[in-house]
Amino acid sequence: MPRYAALIYGDAATETSGTPEQWASIMVEYNDFGATAGAAGVLAGGEALQPTPTATTIHVKGGKGGELLTTDGPFAETKEVLGGFYLLECKDLDEAIHWAAQIPGAWHGRVEVRPVIDFSQE
């Protein structure tokens, strides 16, 4: 079965703000999605990420074994940031879009659907 990554993007500003009540209601939405998609056998995995201020970006300059450069923050400073992802097992893009549209991130922000490379078929 083909797999799709559903990458969940949200507003960087609201990532760290929001009242506990707001977060609780969003968590309920995510639990609903997890239960429905899980029961349908669509979920192959997924994680929520800590906010971007906790991110560390590294780069090894000059090839393997070169100088290690470590910077504070996410790779790209953008208004919308990656907040988590699901791995969806779907037969085609339409089915992946159908499920991605039920991820709460689709209405709180954006969900990017990307096919995962199947190396056994390459």
Binding site: P2, K91, D92, L93, D94, V113, P115
Partner: peptide, 10 residues
């Protein structure tokens, strides 16, 4: 081909 956009009528 890669994203598997299906051949189907909605």
């Amino acid at each position: 081909a890669t994203a598997r956009i299906p051949y189907r009528v909605p």
